[in-house]
Design a protein around this nucleic acid. Structure first.
Lengths: 350, 350
DNA sequence: GTGAAAGCGCTAACAT
DNA sequence: ATGTTAGCGCTTTCAC
């Protein structure tokens, strides 16, 4: 005869939340019957009549099952962790959207942690583990990241996205950086350029290294001479400016510059404009990522489009396969990028 | 004498997770002592010696407190819900960053729900409530949104961001849309324009209405004649194209167009280019939001910059005040935007 | 087909 | 200063 509000020790957060006990009482059945009736998978164990009564009572009382309690009891949460270096970087929102689509279809929630400083990575991961996340997606990993070791030791189902794991211990979904560079170099070569430079990303990041190697390989495949390479300190417009400045100060001036990403390419634009050089008449420029609006800058940027949403979606699907114990078919999935030709690349003057 | 692996009924998700009981046993003390020793707020109740032993045991065993269990016991989760209409819309990532900064400083996690279709809003909210979120931040609200009624009824501490609540029932943190429009109109008036039009946002959204009213008021304040107003069906480049087309087909052609956001302004660019009209020589254009890269489009867009990160941060702080039962000092916080003058606006030809 | 009972891992009275 | 005890709300054997 205990009323919902008659509970004792810890006072409920919201005033008198309705529990499964209240529903059982209202429906005149046992709590376990309510539990079964409200679970789609076990609903059929219940007689039609009782089922109806339970559902009516639940609705009438405004019953909302407490996921915290069921998670504790079953040992299964419906959370996945997502580690990002910078949510305002435009490559991540579509990746998140892909992850979210996969997760919410399974009624999972993402716990997003924006790990600005890599030194915090382990602490954040500890907090995520304390929340009993069922799996993890990491977009933060650098080469030889100690976090990979740590997360492997925990046994948490983990997949990397947008970054491969050199050690091969973790699954990953990435875009084909080498192919992307081949697309860019081939396009420039077809335009008649022979002296092609590269503004490379930080060589600590797998993408930075992969794109640089892809660039070098693509030149070799075409029998072109090795191009100048300047390493940027970051994937930013500012870093692009610095690198381009450095590139231009070294003779001879390249006919084309393949940039590790769009922001770096836009930094190169800045330096060219400041130096009175024209894109693409004096130097052709290519980017990487196809950020929103790079089709509207002057000149519209030729770049490589990555399947960002697909990247996130596939990474999440792979992680859920791991969670469900499905045999891992692929350890690294490599998705195909696409060259988008706009107006920042042009034929070499005859 | 039960070993960690000897547990019975529900098999643990990860093999033999270390519990507080294991630590207690290893340290030779009671679980409640461990609980106290590991809580910064109650640590001082424990003798230095025992404290050291407990900490050593916890570290040695790799103990990780289970937040699910403590949340169930205390009735307090460390989750906040965040409702977004579209995470790939560039205004939201910096807002999320601001929310995340506030939340993670308090050791809370965000549960982000991307509510693409407003019809799903209530279902998503139910799922969020089932997770026992301590508070909610909504960026999805339309005017007279039924969700406001629903969430008010639940009593969940809720704050709107980037959208005010017409009914005044919920706290909100917004940018000053009227002031923004005044900035834009004053700027154009100073350039000599007298015939100024507005591509308005959907009038169902609070921002769409507020900006439109701000526009009209700003014209009146300057004793300018009422301008033509075309309502866009969305805040998109495509909707901007459609609206601009409609505006140009009606005589007389305006000297300047104030757009409800940057994408709409870029849609207006498209139509102008297609019609052989020049920005700003033939028509000046202003945007709203200062999206990334609009400083690099041709011509660089004059627009209104919103303090997006601050918006998110303040909304989260307000929500946490509500959660902690602090007296709500402000129901709606209005932040000041800033006009960024670039090259899409110019003086009226004499 | 339904009920009884146990217990997930933790915290907070209440002892002592 | 530490131990005892009683649950938080739910699911899942095990009976009947």
């Amino acid at each position: 005869m205990t009323s919902p509000s008659q509970r004792s020790t810890p006072s409920p957060a919201s005033p008198a939340a309705v529990t499964i006990r209240d529903v059982a009482q209202a429906a005149g059945v046992h709590v376990s019957t309510v539990s079964r009736a409200l679970d789609p998978n076990r609903r059929q164990l219940i007689s039609a009549e009782v089922l109806k009564q339970v559902e009516a009572a639940a609705r009438r009382l405004g019953y909302r099952p407490n996921r915290t309690a069921s998670a504790l009891r079953t040992g299964r949460s419906n959370f996945i962790g997502v580690l990002l270096p910078d949510i305002t970087n435009s490559v991540f929102p579509p990746i998140l959207e892909g992850i979210e689509a996969s997760a919410s279809a399974r009624h999972y929630f993402m716990l997003i942690a924006n790990v600005r400083d890599a030194a915090n990575g382990k602490a954040v991961l500890e907090r995520l583990l304390a929340q009993q996340v069922a799996g993890l997606i990491m977009a933060t990993v650098t080469r030889d990241d100690p976090l990979v070791e740590f997360v492997t030791a925990t046994g948490l189902p983990t997949v990397l996205v947008n970054r491969a794991d050199d050690s091969g211990r973790l699954g990953a979904v990435v875009s084909d950086d080498r192919l992307a560079m081949k697309f860019a170099v081939d396009h420039l070569a077809q335009l008649g350029h022979t002296h092609i430079a590269h503004l490379a990303g930080p060589q600590l990041s797998p993408t930075g290294l992969g794109r640089r190697q892809g660039f070098e390989q693509a030149l070799r495949d075409r029998d072109l001479p090795p191009g100048q390479i300047v390493e940027c300190t970051a994937y930013s417009r500012e870093a692009g400016r610095v690198a381009m400045q450095q590139l231009l100060s070294s003779a001879p001036r390249p006919q084309a510059v393949v940039c590790c990403n769009d922001l770096v390419a836009l930094g190169a634009y800045d330096v060219m404009h400041a130096a009175g050089l024209r894109v693409p008449e004096d130097i052709s420029i290519t980017g990487h990522n196809d950020m929103p609006l790079v089709d509207l800058v002057a000149p519209p940027l030729t770049t490589v489009r990555l399947p960002h949403r697909e990247l996130g979606w596939r990474a999440a699907e792979m992680m859920f396969d791991l969670i469900l114990g499905k045999p891992g078919l692929a350890s690294t999935v490599v998705l195909r990028p696409e060259l988008v030709i706009r107006a920042s690349t042009a034929a070499r003057p005859a």
